[in-house]
Nucleic acid binder design. Structure first.
Lengths: 213, 213
DNA sequence: GTAGAACATGAATGATTAGTCATGTTTTGT
DNA sequence: ACAAAACATGACTAATCATTCATGTTCTAC
């Protein structure tokens, strides 16, 4: 009957525009502070100072420090998925979709350097929300891959395994180039990786025969 | 002249067998505590309690809490690389090597569930050692891939990009199955992924002509 | 068998900080 | 205009915890 420990508590929602503004400032400040120094090395005072509000104000919007991190993960997750789905909207060819999705993901990382650190921190604050972040992305991927399999666009096989492989590739590419090197990977690298993914996904010759399953 | 902030300080090395034993107990305790609760939610008291030594004893071996995490990352990194190199020793075929390496990596994760969490925590304690962990693995990978390219075993291309792709695949496979699902991935999944990697790496038809470069 | 080195201890300290609260100020509905 | 709701504040509290230290104990070399 009672909610379990880490489940979603409904956060106090601001009613006025002013409240909405303050909440946003807090989230943005937290994103930057957590991204720069990490969750545990950031104090509430750091966040409220950056957001330019009083310390007590924080607790009008978030019941605890953990809660603002959770909210941040949910928010960034939604933003990412929205961004990606816009970038590949209307593309019917699955391999082309992968190529565009990869590029879009790396671009997103580049624009949101805090993404990786925020998500990784979540692991130590609320394992469930950390896993959800990846599983939600995986779900979308899996159903897309299954359709593509059904249409004979890609190799038959365990779509879940394929999804995690593709996620792993994108993740490490983003980490190595967008986050660490702080520049988009050179076109040649993107090309290399897209080719790798395409070869890995492309149906074997004999599979192409049986067409739209 | 002075060492820079996060560089390797030489840790006090025990001289006697007894000291060696205590140091080991501390490292093992720290690995388990950090793995279970995370670096910041683990106190020195937690570690010394688990290691069954006095609190002060900790500082005989490690100058600070950060230092034991650093040491742990170095230690696990070495263990992993040693394990992998043993498992693929003597295999000349690069694709077979990848398949075996993947299986070995997943097995290692399964036996060392704390690996991921320890390494991820390192990021917020000492970014350099976190990056080194991956870069060191990448280096070995890259030179192996370059040789394989030279021999025409795999597709010509940016070996570094290939290395990060393969690392990403292994990482996410380990995360999804060994760490989260707490069981080795089914043979079918391993097969699926190995096929993916093999297709992604295999030389294109026209490349195979030019043989041992 | 003893001096000195190595190792061991746990109570005390000092600093940090998440969360609270008593006291405002501003906005909204009527 | 004014009551009530929403929003804002920053000083305070209570707890945690990394690190230190004064005081042992156990080895090792000779």
């Amino acid at each position: 009957m009672t909610l379990k420990k880490d489940s979603v508590k409904d956060l106090p929602q601001p009613v006025t525009q002013r409240g909405e503004m303050t909440r946003r400032k807090l989230l943005e400040a937290a994103e930057n502070e957590f991204g720069a120094k990490g969750f545990h090395n950031t104090s509430i005072a750091d966040i409220t100072k950056r957001a330019d509000v009083g310390q007590g104000t924080f607790y009008l919007y978030f019941p605890s420090k953990e809660d603002i991190l959770r909210e941040l993960v949910r928010y960034m997750s939604r933003s990412l998925r929205l961004y990606l789905s816009e970038k590949v909207a209307g593309i019917r060819d699955r391999l082309e979709r992968e190529r565009l999705g990869l590029r879009a993901f790396v671009d997103f990382c580049f624009e949101h350097k805090n993404l990786y650190r925020i998500v990784m921190q979540a692991q130590f604050v609320d394992e469930a929300i950390y896993q959800d972040y990846y599983r939600t992305i995986a779900e979308g991927y899996i159903s897309g891959l299954r359709s593509a399999q059904a249409e004979g666009q890609i190799r038959q096989g365990d779509a879940e395994a394929q999804a995690w492989v593709l996620m792993g590739i994108a993740h490490f590419l983003g980490l190595r180039y967008a986050i660490w090197q702080e520049q988009a990977p050179p076109e040649s690298v993107l090309q290399e990786v897209a080719t790798f993914m395409a070869s890995g996904l492309r149906p074997l010759a004999h599979e192409r025969e049986k067409d739209g399953g």
